[in-house]
Simulated scan of single mutants.
Amino acid sequence: MNTSSNEHLLPGGGVSIDALPKISLHDHLDGGLRPQTIIELADAIGIDVPTTDAAQLGAWFAEQANSGSLVDYLKTFDVTTSVMQTTEGLERVAREFVQDLGTDGVIYGEVRWAPEQHLGRGLNLDEVVEAVQRGIDAGIDDVYSSGREIRVGQLVTAMRHADRGLEIAELAVRHRERGVVGFDIAGAELGFPAGNHRAAFDYLAKEFFPVTVHAGEADGVESIRGALFDGRALRLGHGVRLAEDVTIEREDDDNSYVTLGPVARWVRDRQIALELSPSSNLQTGAIAAWGDEMIDHPFDLLYQLGFRVTVNTDNRLMSNTSLSNELGLLSDAFGYDLDDFEQFQQNAVAAAFLPLEDREELAEAISDGFAEA
């Protein structure tokens, strides 16, 4: 899929996937740092990193993350968050994050991150959110200066294992007119159900504030049920294990005959978006019940059954990937073409935490961009 210039091409037609307009809904700020930036920020504040060679550091992240365990995968974030404890570090990381999205053809992105993990050097919650927003704004200006367009919103995230959910929810709402578009909970999923943060979700519901919840990655259907019931989730972060609630009754040469369980049927019938991240789902073992290769990912099953599937990177550094790369991998595995790619982007547009008018503009931009491909 990769050419010598690292451009991703759609098999057969030679269309550049990189040039296509794309929507990114599930992309972690602390999972998208440039290796060289980590080295330079660490040096500035006196922190040791595994290696001071950028290429070797990038390879180290990919190797460590490819563990088959979400818990082990998450340990790599100790390194990235350690250099994101100052306003300078946060601004630079956020700015470069947006630049890299723009280079990949993303025209709208939502960047999620947990402010409570960035208070180690004396900053408070509002200060870190403001620092990230300054970086995002600068990155948007950079993308515009390069002749492209992009919009980016923050998804303020609370950590599942901590007890600051309501405080972080109030932080998100406090900044809703200054760049924050939604709320999320993330971190270790198994053993930390969404119901632990019911007070936060009750508050957000009263404020009519959009919510996505990590669910169906390291835990199964009951976790998804909790995200929907306790979290009132409008989207599911990953949600890949929703396929456990899909029973394949029989298959023939042309068709599969399935029965949907109550949770799967609710998600499909209400078109609650699945923020699927193919490479990450392989790395963390989220699809272990189906196999360990891309062709085993239930993405295509969910797509063919009419679920609102979206394609995401999760953590570009840890998975050594981009949105264009993820689309290319799916095309290689399932034979997707330009029409499929456009459908994935329109699915993401429909699920974006934006006003209807803005989503209509994005939908038109996607249609126009694909028509020109």
Rank of each mutant, 00 (worst) to 15 (best):
S256A: 15
V311K: 11
M318K: 11
N320G: 08
L323P: 09
N281S: 01
R250K: 12
R268Y: 08
W290V: 05
V240W: 07
H297M: 10
E293C: 09
D300P: 06
I248Q: 14
L242Y: 02
T259L: 11
W266T: 14
G291I: 06
E275Q: 12
D292W: 12
G237E: 05
E249F: 05
R270H: 14
W290T: 07
L329M: 13
L242H: 04
I272L: 05
L330P: 14
R235V: 06
T310Q: 08
N312C: 08
D245I: 03
A264Y: 11
E249T: 09
F307G: 07
F307K: 02
V246M: 08
I287S: 02
D314W: 01
E326M: 05
N312M: 02
L236W: 09
L276G: 07
D269G: 04
N320C: 06
M318L: 13
L282W: 01
S324A: 15
E244Q: 13
L282N: 01
R316W: 03
D300L: 10
V311G: 12
D314K: 02
L327V: 15
Q271M: 13
I295K: 15
R268T: 06
L274H: 04
A333F: 03
D252F: 06
V263H: 05
P262E: 07
Q271C: 01
A273P: 08
A264R: 01
L282T: 00
R308G: 03
L302S: 10
N325C: 13
S280P: 04
D245G: 00
Y257N: 04
E275V: 04
L329S: 13
A264M: 03
Y303F: 14
V240M: 09
S322I: 09
T310L: 04
T310M: 09
N255M: 13
W266N: 05
I295M: 13
S279N: 01
I287W: 01
P262N: 11
I248S: 13
A289M: 15
P278T: 08
D252T: 07
V267N: 01
D300M: 10
Q304L: 06
R308F: 10
A288W: 02
L276S: 14
G285Q: 01
N255V: 13
D245V: 11
E326S: 12
E326G: 10
D254P: 06
H297T: 05
N255H: 15
L274S: 04
T259Q: 15
G237L: 05
V309W: 07
L276T: 12
M318F: 11
R250F: 06
D253P: 11
L305K: 01
W266K: 10
H297I: 00
S331E: 12
L236T: 08
D245T: 05
R308H: 07
D269L: 02
E244V: 11
